[in-house]
Computed example of a mutant assay.
Amino acid sequence: MVTLPKAVRQHYGLGPDTPLTLVDWNGVFILSPRIPVVTDLAKQIAVERAAAGLSVQDLLRTWDQERYGADVPQSEDA
């Protein structure tokens, strides 16, 4: 277990559950926050989708249209 000074935790916005990565670079230890990129992107997409009034089905339908053009396979729930 490693304890970081309160000032450092506050400055970098680190909480008790913030995942960190430890890298050993020829005897020099580098400790950095692990940035959950995919999780952050998924949250951003969900917020923007809701703000636009779109459902997940709307996004999938549009994706299919982009992918297949006019020949979009129809699902049973469409």
Rank of each mutant, 00 (worst) to 15 (best):
E76C: 03
I35P: 03
A50C: 06
V37P: 01
V28G: 04
T18W: 07
G15V: 03
L22C: 15
D77F: 07
D71S: 04
S32V: 09
P5Q: 02
V8Q: 04
V56W: 06
E66A: 01
S75H: 11
L59N: 04
A70Q: 02
D64Y: 00
P16C: 03
Q44N: 12
M1R: 11
R49Y: 03
V37T: 15
E66F: 01
A70M: 03
V23I: 15
V38Y: 04
A46S: 15
M1E: 10
D77M: 06
N26V: 11
V28L: 14
K6V: 11
D77P: 04
A50S: 12
L59R: 04
W25Q: 11
A52N: 07
D40M: 14
Y12A: 00
R61E: 05
V56D: 04
L31I: 15
V28W: 09
V8M: 08
A42S: 10
P33D: 07
E66M: 02
V47R: 15
R67T: 08
T18N: 00
D24R: 07
P33N: 04
R49K: 14
R61H: 07
G13P: 02
L20I: 14
W63G: 00
K43L: 14
R9H: 00
E66I: 00
T39M: 08
D40T: 10
N26A: 14
G13V: 00
P19D: 06
G15M: 05
L31E: 04
F29H: 09
D17Y: 07
V56Q: 08
K43Q: 15
R49V: 01
S32I: 03
A42K: 13
V8L: 14
T3K: 10
A52G: 05
L59Q: 07
M1D: 10
Q65N: 03
Q10H: 08
S32N: 11
V56K: 04
I30S: 00
V38E: 11
G53V: 08
P73C: 06
E76R: 09
V56F: 05
A50M: 10
A46W: 04
R49C: 01
D40A: 13
L20V: 15
Q74M: 08
K43F: 12
L59S: 01
L41G: 01
A50P: 03
D17E: 14
I45C: 05
I35G: 02
D40K: 09
I30E: 04
A50Y: 01
S55V: 08
G13I: 02
D40P: 00
Q10I: 06
L59T: 01
R67Y: 05
V23L: 14
F29V: 12
L20K: 09
V47K: 15
P73I: 05
P73A: 06
I30Y: 00
L14N: 01
V38Q: 09
P16R: 13
Q10S: 11
L4E: 03
Q74K: 13
E76G: 03
S55M: 09
A42H: 08
T62E: 14
A78R: 07
A7M: 01
P33E: 13
R9K: 13
A7T: 03
